[in-house]
Structures are given as structure tokens and as C-alpha cells.
Design a protein around this nucleic acid. Sequence first.
DNA 1: GCAACACTCAACCAAATGGTTGACTCTCTC
DNA 2: GAGAGAGTCAACCATTTGGTTGAGTGTTGC
Lengths: 118, 118
Amino acid sequence: MVESQTRQLDTVFHALADPTRRQMLQALAGGERTVGQLAEPFAMSLAAASKHIKALEQARLIRREVRGRTHVCRLEPAPLASAHEWLGFYERFWAGRLDILEQLLRAEAGRKSEGEKK
Amino acid sequence: MVESQTRQLDTVFHALADPTRRQMLQALAGGERTVGQLAEPFAMSLAAASKHIKALEQARLIRREVRGRTHVCRLEPAPLASAHEWLGFYERFWAGRLDILEQLLRAEAGRKSEGEKK
DNA sequence: GCAACACTCAACCAAATGGTTGACTCTCTC
DNA sequence: GAGAGAGTCAACCATTTGGTTGAGTGTTGC
């Protein structure tokens, strides 16, 4: 299950590594879109766009509902949350420096106000 | 510059899409590591591991300092922060639902405790 | 100064990626 | 029911990726 989580991150980060797919996600942030609508902004064949959409689908970043002859896609945010959480682990490395700075400032402030017991 | 940011996200997400490279980052979260130390846990040649390290370096996720014959790597968190921030845009999509759920629960609780003014 | 060490580099290979085109399957509309 | 529309599928192609091995480059230590 750690294994499967690893694979999930593999496919999610791989899906996010392509600018076309990231743009598609941003389009979907505006609401449901058909395959045709998602493909339209790009200078590539519909088949190529369809492959990108499939990659997003396999990463479970989107879900597809077939309505008649059109396929409507919508954002499925859970894997994005996982990726966000994974990155959050490293937050201390870019925020941590601020924390250390803060500690130093507190210590400095503490030394200045020494003796004045609350 | 939007262009360059896009490319940066490309390389960062691509670097993160590989489990070997993610493990290397986690090792580096524990502090500085040499190329040999980073490569050691993996059942692959040093040359292969070196390529992974170069991928991390090109994504600016790590920095390398040459000390004599050893190359010491350390985490460079800024691009992780960018990726985290990019994902953060979608937070409303997974947090929003929880908000709605929360509202429903509150409404439910409110209905149950109707009349019992605090 | 020479052998071992810590790596990188280059050439090579198989598999995956990202694109194309053409044929095919449904579905809708007239 | 025939044609147009929406989209997938399969075959193909060039490029990239992720690995290998073997040789090469500095550095260190005896």
C-alpha cells in the first residue's frame, strides 16, 4: 500500500510534468469540459489530446462521464491533494529558515526584556 | 517569464515523477549526502544514479558542492515551494468540499440543538 | 608516484512518450 | 436511414528516458 501510494505519486507527477496536461487541468478548474473543448486550444490532433486526457484519467486527476456522443470531464482533486501533502513534508525546508529566524528574533527579544516576569 | 516558469514546473514535476529521485530527496531531507551515499540504497549502477542526481540538479532541486574527489549534495527547496504553491491553487477543490460538508454538519447540528440557546 | 577511490562521460540498448494519420464506433439530426 | 459530429483505437514514427558497460579524470593516501 505504500507501494501503491508510490505508484500513484509516479503517475500524478508524471501527468503534471506536461504543460498541455496542466493547462487542461486549469481549464477544468473552470468547470466541466468536453474532450473537444479541452483539445481545442492546442495545435495538435484530437487523437493526441485524447491521449493526454487519458493520462490525466489514469492518474485519477479527472473523471469522464459519457453523455451521448460527447465525453464530459471534470476535475478529481484528491490526487492533487496527495501530491500537495507530499510536497508539504518539505515545507520546513523553505519555511523552516523563517522559523529559525523567528526563534532567533524571539531569543533576542527575550534577552532584551530579561527580568521582566510576566 | 511565464514560459520559464512553465519549463521549471515541467522539469520539477518530471524529476518528482521518479521514485528513485523522490527517495533521494528524502535522503537529502536528513542532511547533506555524497553522490555515493545517495546511490547506495539502489540496485543500479553508480552511473545510473548519477544521471538521476543530474536530473534533480537540472530541476534545481539540489545543489552540488565538489569537495576534493567527493561531490556533496544538499536540498534546494525553492522549486518544491513553487510546485507546492502551484498545487495550492487547486486546494479549494478538495478543501471546498470539506467546507461544504462542514456547513452541512453545522446546519444539521444547528437543527438538532434548535432552541437551546447558549 | 602509484594504486585505490569517487565520480563523470560516451556509447549503446530497450522501453516509454508524444505526436501523426486513417479507420472505426456511436450518437444525433434531418 | 444517411450523413455529420464526437471521440477512440491501432499502427506507425522520432525522441526521450532509464538503464548498462567501459573508459577517463581528478584526488587521496600510503
